[in-house]
Amino acid sequence: MKYYRKLVSVGLALTAIGLSLAALAAEPVTPKLTDKLSRLLQQEMRSVQSAMATIHVSMVTGDHKQVEAQAQQIHDSFILKQSLTEQDKKDLMAAVPEGFVTLDKDFHRLAAGLADAAKNKDTQKQYKLYNKMTGSCIACHSQYVSDRFDGLTEQ
C-alpha cells in the first residue's frame, strides 16, 4: 500500500510538472507575422524542405558535392539576411521571441557544418548533423508553429 501511495504521488507530481511546462510553451508566431513576412518564411521553409530531401538522398548515395551545395543553400537562406526593409526587420523581431531566433541561427549554423562535412566527405558527420537539423526543425515547429503542425504539440 505504501508503494502504491508513493507511485500515485510521483504520478501526480509528474503531471503537475507537465502541466506547468505546457503553460510555459511558446505561443505560435504565425498569427503575429505580417503577410509579407509570412510569405517569406513559407517560401524559405519550402526551400529548406526541398533541400533537406535532396540532402537525404545525396547522403545515402555518397553524393558529397550535392550535400555540400544543398546544405550551403540552407545556410545562405537565413531569413534575417534576406533583403528585408528596416520595417520588416522590426516587424519580425516584434513577432518572434528570442528562442525562435536562437533556434533559427542554430539551424543555419548546423547547415554550414553539414556543408563542411560534405566537403570533407565525412559521411558519419553528415549523418549526425542532418539528424540535429531535423531535431531543430521539430523543436521549432512544435514550439512556434504548433497552430500549423498540431501533431507536434506533444513534443
Rank of each mutant, 00 (worst) to 15 (best):
L110D: 09
Q126D: 01
A23F: 15
G11T: 12
M59F: 03
D106H: 06
T102V: 11
S20R: 12
E27H: 00
L80M: 15
T34C: 06
A71C: 11
E98S: 03
V145C: 09
Q124M: 07
P31D: 11
V60Y: 11
L24M: 11
K125D: 03
Q82A: 15
N131D: 08
T123W: 12
N131S: 14
V29T: 06
D76Y: 05
A26S: 10
T134R: 12
H108C: 03
M1R: 03
S58K: 09
M59L: 13
L21K: 05
I138G: 02
L114H: 09
V145D: 04
A95W: 07
P31Y: 07
M45A: 12
P97W: 09
Q70L: 14
R148P: 02
Y4T: 10
Y130D: 04
T30S: 11
M1P: 05
L114W: 15
T134C: 11
K32A: 14
K119S: 13
V67M: 06
Q155P: 00
G151P: 04
G11K: 00
Q70Y: 12
P31S: 10
K132A: 05
M52V: 13
M45V: 03
E98G: 02
D35A: 13
V8A: 14
I79E: 03
Y3L: 01
K65W: 00
L84I: 12
Y130F: 14
Q70I: 10
S83H: 15
F100E: 00
S77I: 05
Q82T: 14
S9E: 05
A94T: 09
D147T: 00
S47N: 10
Q124K: 15
R109M: 15
G99Y: 03
M52G: 10
G62T: 00
E86R: 00
T54Q: 13
M1N: 08
K121Y: 12
Y4A: 13
A71H: 13
A51L: 08
I17Q: 05
A94I: 02
D122Q: 14
K6G: 04
P28G: 02
H141K: 01
D106L: 10
H56Q: 12
V8R: 00
E86F: 08
A25W: 00
H56D: 10
A23H: 07
M52D: 01
M52L: 11
I55R: 01
L114I: 01
T134M: 05
K2C: 03
T153D: 03
S83K: 15
Y130N: 02
A115K: 12
G62L: 00
A25S: 14
E154S: 05
